[in-house]
Design a protein around this nucleic acid. Structure first.
Length: 444
RNA sequence: GGAGAGGUGGCUGAGUGGCUUAAAGCGACGGUUUGCUAAACCGUUGUACGGGCUAAAACCUGUACCGGGGGUUCGAAUCCCCCCCUCUCCGCCA
């Protein structure tokens, strides 16, 4: 969410952001509603001011013990005269009250519409961000590592997983329907090894680890920008007004909702591992093979809450991307970093990079990480602020990135490390987390 | 799930319809005093949205906010209704 003052002062920038991002947001309507909102408030304030003043007098008329009342009697006013004065006052107050009621009724609708429209206004993308309509417009920033060439016919992760007893899709589907799966034995063990490695890396890099609720109040979904708009993507518990999160970004970013932090406490760097739930509505028929697009997975997520400083926020953006790259490099996976264009980045983002990891079965790079810089978009929705050195209250900036998400990352890990004898070699970095196991062999 | 007690400023805690612009204390900050520290004394002390003055602030001014939302009233922290949350006891339970 943007500041309404910023919007009124940068109408052209906002209009361009709406166009480039391709979001539905009626800016003209918002500006008109805002004008009406202000006019109503001005009138409301004026009437209440008068009402407060006259109301205070009323108290004096009505209270025989008040100094004013005794003075009036001393001046020679009779009780009847005082009562008549009170009646006169009261009729004016009733008049005010009626008008105030009208204003309140209209304001309710106007503010509701204002709030609703405000939630649709997109953040203005950074100057660096390429303009483009969709993922086609994303720009490759760098490549690290080489895709492997096989001198035998490689299997895909489903064949490998099932033949090595690590993956059971059929039973996952039996238990919970399409896009579900079961990791078994060494597959499950490797999954947890990856998460533990990622937690160790991120903790070592100065992030505080947390265990957070993953069924959260809907405010948090709104505050982080998933609602309105993303309701179809989430498992929502209607009767509780809560939703299962699609990422630990939600509870981590909302952790300080409605708080005013001290500048000295910033930046806050948090990380959590959580199960992530996604309905994948609208993705019917897309990526249906294997464990690429599934309804639940586990992810280690990193979040930074920092000062409202563009340069600082950019620095943290690079830092959290480097953190993810460190994990990929430890796992010896080839990947590339993409700068995401306006049409593919989402409403709330100022700048966004995706990391894509090489997946032989896809014959290309597949998204495994997403690093976003939000400016104050989320913080303003969450009312997440800090007091700066000059005691001025400012809205924080937030950022986040995947550290690792599994089992999607098992796709390249299994496929790239497979051997001609149908075994899979375990990357060195994971071995300490798997009891020193070096290789997953076919069972006989 | 059942029964009860609560929710007031950074914290503690008064406040049962109007001289309350929320008392008092603590803390924090500023000042006076002091060889230093402490103490004492004096002062200040929230957030949001308008308006005024500004280059911008500071500042002045209005309104709202006593868990959230409605209602009664000329007027609500205070009375009524709904919801949320916390605590205690009971039941159930990983």
């Amino acid at each position: 969410m943007l500041d309404i003052k910023y919007i009124t002062e940068h109408v052209d920038d906002v209009r361009r952001a709406i166009r480039d991002k391709g979001v539905a947001s009626d800016l003209d309507r918002l500006l008109a509603v805002n004008e009406r909102r202000r006019a109503l408030q001005t009138e409301f304030d004026r009437l209440r001011s008068e009402s407060n003043e006259l109301g205070a007098n009323m108290a004096l008329y009505r209270n025989p013990k008040s100094k004013w009342h005794q003075d009036a009697v001393a001046r020679g006013m009779t009780p009847d005269q005082i009562r008549a004065e009170a009646e006169k006052l009261q009729s004016r107050l009733t008049e005010i009250k009626n008008r105030v009621r009208e204003i309140e009724t209209e304001s309710k609708g106007v503010i509701e519409e204002f709030d609703r429209l405000m939630l649709t206004v997109p953040q203005v993308p950074s100057a660096k961000t390429p303009v483009g309509p969709n993922a086609e417009g994303n720009v490759e920033v760098r490549r690290v590592g080489q895709p492997r060439r096989f001198d035998f016919k490689p299997k895909d992760h489903v064949e490998l997983g099932e033949s090595l007893g690590m993956l059971d899709i059929a039973r996952g589907v039996k238990l919970a329907g399409a896009r579900n799966y079961v990791l078994r034995g060494a597959g499950c063990r490797m999954h947890h090894a990856i998460l533990r490695l990622a937690l160790d890396v991120i903790a070592q890099r100065g992030f505080e680890l947390m265990t957070v609720p993953i069924l959260v109040n809907d405010d948090m979904m709104r505050g982080t920008g998933y609602y309105p708009g993303g309701e179809e993507q989430a498992y929502r518990c209607e009767r509780d007004g809560k939703s299962l999160v699609g990422t630990a970004e939600v509870p981590l970013t909302a952790f300080h909702q409605n708080e005013i932090l001290d500048e000295a406490e910033l930046p806050r760097k948090y990380a959590a591992v959580s199960t992530c739930f996604r309905r994948e509505a609208g993705a019917a028929g897309k990526d249906t093979h294997g464990i690429y697009r599934i309804h639940f997975f586990d992810k280690v997520e990193q979040v930074v809450i920092c000062r409202a400083d563009e340069a600082e926020s950019e620095r943290f953006h690079h830092e959290i991307i480097a953190n993810a790259e460190a994990v990929l490099q430890a796992l010896e996976l080839p990947y590339r970093v993409m700068l995401v264009c306006t049409g593919d980045m989402g409403q709330g983002k100022v700048e966004m990079y995706d990391i894509e990891t090489w997946m032989p079965s896809r014959g290309g790079y597949g998204e495994t990480h997403s690093a976003s810089r939000f400016g104050e978009f989320q913080a303003r929705r969450l009312n997440l602020r800090y007091r700066d050195r000059d005691k001025k209250i400012r809205v924080c900036h937030t950022l986040n990135n995947t550290v690792i998400a599994s089992p999607r990352i098992l796709i390249p890990l299994w496929e790239l490390n497979q051997n001609a004898d149908a075994s899979v070699t375990i990357p060195k970095a994971l071995r300490p987390y798997m009891g020193g196991m070096e290789r997953i062999e076919p069972q006989h």
